[in-house]
Amino acid sequence: MTRYLLSIYQPDGPRPSDERLAEINRDLEALNVELRAVGSWVFDGGLHAASTATVLRPGAGASEVMITDGPFVDSKEHLGGIKIIDAPDLDAALGWAAKLTRAVGLPVEVRPFQG
């Protein structure tokens, strides 16, 4: 099995309605039940808004670190949540990502972990 990161990207803007969030949460829980049943679920979690991010960058000196508020990049979409899964191959990971995309109605990036 290979471990994959499924990254969910969400647009900036207002939160979905409570009704829509309830739908999304129901669909995500159903997906998690399915992933757990086949032993593929590892970890998942949603993130607060990109405006809550803090970025650390190397400074001029070897031990210097600069800290700034806000997301790493200025974009209309930001990382909104992640799911880490085990899958036998990329095709299987893409299948899970397709289910995740349908559940949340947002783009999902799939990347394998090294090693």
Rank of each mutant, 00 (worst) to 15 (best):
W41N: 06
D89F: 06
L90Y: 08
I82S: 14
T54L: 07
A98M: 02
A92R: 11
A103P: 08
V110C: 01
D69V: 02
Q114E: 13
K83W: 11
E64L: 03
A49E: 15
A92K: 15
I85M: 11
G39V: 06
G105P: 02
P71V: 07
A103R: 04
A49C: 14
A98V: 03
A60R: 08
I82M: 07
W41H: 03
G61Y: 02
L106T: 06
L100S: 07
P71L: 00
V110E: 01
D91G: 06
A37D: 14
W41E: 04
T52K: 09
G80L: 01
P112K: 06
G81M: 00
W96I: 15
M66K: 13
G105T: 03
R36K: 15
V55K: 04
A37T: 03
D44R: 00
V42G: 01
K83F: 15
V73Q: 09
V65E: 04
S51A: 15
H78V: 02
S63Y: 13
A87G: 09
R111T: 00
M66G: 15
G39L: 02
H48T: 12
E64M: 05
L56R: 05
D86G: 10
T52N: 05
D44S: 07
T54K: 10
A93R: 05
G95S: 11
P88F: 14
R57G: 04
V42Q: 01
A49P: 15
D74L: 11
Q114T: 15
R111M: 00
A53W: 09
K76V: 06
T52G: 06
D44G: 13
G39I: 05
A98D: 11
A62H: 09
S51F: 06
G105W: 03
A49R: 14
F113Y: 13
A60Q: 07
A37S: 11
D44Q: 02
S51I: 10
G46N: 03
E109V: 01
K83Q: 14
H48I: 13
A97G: 00
W96H: 13
A98W: 11
R36H: 04
W96A: 14
A60K: 04
G45H: 07
P88W: 03
A62Q: 10
L79D: 01
G45S: 11
D74P: 12
V108C: 00
T54S: 12
L35K: 08
L35H: 09
S63P: 03
V104G: 13
V110N: 00
D69R: 15
F72G: 01
A87Y: 15
L47D: 11
A103N: 00
P58M: 01
A49L: 10
L35F: 03
L94R: 06
R36C: 07
G95Y: 07
W41D: 12
A50L: 05
L47H: 05
G80Q: 04
L94M: 11
L56Y: 09
A49Q: 10
L35S: 02
K99E: 12
V110D: 01
G45Y: 09
K76R: 05
S51E: 12
G80K: 04
G80H: 07
D86C: 08
A53Q: 09
L79V: 12
V104P: 09
R102N: 10
V42W: 01
R36N: 14
L56K: 01
G80C: 03
V65L: 15
P71M: 05
T68M: 14
G95L: 05
T52M: 12
P112Y: 00
I67W: 03
A60P: 08
G39P: 06
A92E: 15
T68Y: 08
G46M: 06
H78W: 10
